[in-house]
Design a protein around this nucleic acid. Structure first.
Length: 365
DNA sequence: AAAACGGGGAC
DNA sequence: GTCCCAGTTTT
């Protein structure tokens, strides 16, 4: 099995893996569909978080054909809570390409896979190696970290040139007859052994590891500081009239595109209700004679690069009040709204305010 | 080359 | 609080 001229890193890694491999459902198959789905889900997502979504999506969409013929909104609803929603959009787009242009036949090579939307260098390498045995190394956060430490590489892993450099090294290390196993192994090694806070004392590779031998484990890999997050202020107005809610789909190039929400006024600082009414005169007319109740707001919602400060009010509009010119907002029944994808911020807002009776105790989650 | 894109878990 | 995760796309 094992080539005698493997690099010590490679032989040590494979040996470690044979004792410590994680038990993961997508490792029991060579079905490109299941592997592709798992890899999209796992982009920037921990296994534990993605696992339930993987099982559910495979159940709802057993084949690429089921996915391609489905309505995108159904996929979004199932993707709800997983984040990075453009993944769902690209997954759906790629499914349609595979079914409508490729006759339902999956690509079999890295070069073909990477042309599909949502499939970049990492995912193409993962699918090509796991499903088809192609000798392409996966290069993700784990690989950057492991190779930077073991070989003492100081290239900033967020720099443009880093991928080329680490891919080139990984390509030398990956065994031609065990590409898939090497790639699986390096993922588990990065997750279990050489994690961000590594377990060097039990590591079989430590004697040859540059970072460990030079006490630089905490300095490697080198990674540029992240940009600081922006503060945003979301003021939601939950308008209800005749058992219908005023909602819209977010479509801008912004967070949560494709998800649904209530009437939103964004401000650049915290505003109280009177300020908001003053600056949005038309709102005041809608609130004439309406019952306005402040809602319990979720705590500040933290994203990678934004802090969303949220306030909300529940507005019961009298049936006789004309409520016009609200595009792109539309009136919808709560049970239909439940079927649409929503941000976790909105889900928290809803669950925190069940006492208002807006959703008749049915939690849209 | 840099920024945008979610949510959650580990420390 | 900070870091960062089986990254990709857009600017």
């Amino acid at each position: 099995m094992q080539s005698t001229h493997d690099h010590p890193f490679t032989s040590g890694l494979i040996s470690w893996y044979r004792q410590h491999a994680r038990e993961l459902p997508w490792r029991h198959t060579q079905d490109p569909y299941a592997i592709w789905l798992s890899e999209i889900i796992l982009q920037q997502t921990r296994v534990a978080q993605g696992l339930p979504y993987y099982r559910k999506l495979l159940e709802v969409f057993p084949t690429v054909k089921d996915l391609a013929k489905s309505d995108e909104s159904v996929l979004f609803r199932h993707w709800q809570g997983l984040g990075y929603y453009s993944r769902a959009r690209n997954l759906h787009k790629a499914a349609k390409i595979i079914v409508n242009q490729f006759g339902g036949k999956f690509p079999t090579t890295y070069d073909e896979w990477i042309k599909l939307p949502g499939v970049g260098p990492y995912t193409a390498a993962a699918i090509a190696s796991f499903a088809f045995g192609e000798v392409k190394p996966v290069v993700d956060g784990n690989v950057f970290r492991i190779l930077a430490r073991y070989f003492g590489i100081r290239t900033d892993i967020l720099h443009n040139s880093a991928r080329k450099e680490f891919t080139s090294l990984a390509q030398e290390l990956i065994p031609k007859d065990q590409a898939a196993e090497f790639n699986q192994a390096i993922m588990d090694f990065g997750s279990i052994q050489c994690s961000p806070a590594p377990n060097c004392s039990s590591c079989p590779l430590s004697t040859a590891c540059y970072a460990f031998q030079n006490k630089q484990v905490n300095q490697l890999p080198v990674k540029q500081k992240k940009t600081k997050q922006r503060d945003r202020y979301f003021n939601y107005f939950i308008f209800e009239q005749g058992n219908k809610l005023l909602v819209r789909e977010r479509k801008a190039k912004d967070i949560w595109s494709g998800l649904w929400e209530f009437y939103l006024i964004e401000s650049d600082q915290k505003e109280d209700l009177s300020d908001l009414l003053e600056k949005n005169g038309f709102l005041a007319t809608y609130l004439q004679g309406a019952l306005v109740q402040p809602m319990i707001s979720p705590k500040v919602h933290i994203l990678s690069h934004q802090k969303i400060h949220c306030q909300a009010w529940y507005i019961q509009v009298p049936d006789n009040l004309e409520f016009s010119k609200i595009a792109p907002y539309q009136w919808i029944q709560p049970e239909d709204f439940e079927k649409l994808g929503k941000s976790v911020l909105l889900l928290n807002l809803i669950t925190d305010n069940l006492h208002l009776g807006i959703f008749n105790d049915s939690v849209p989650r």
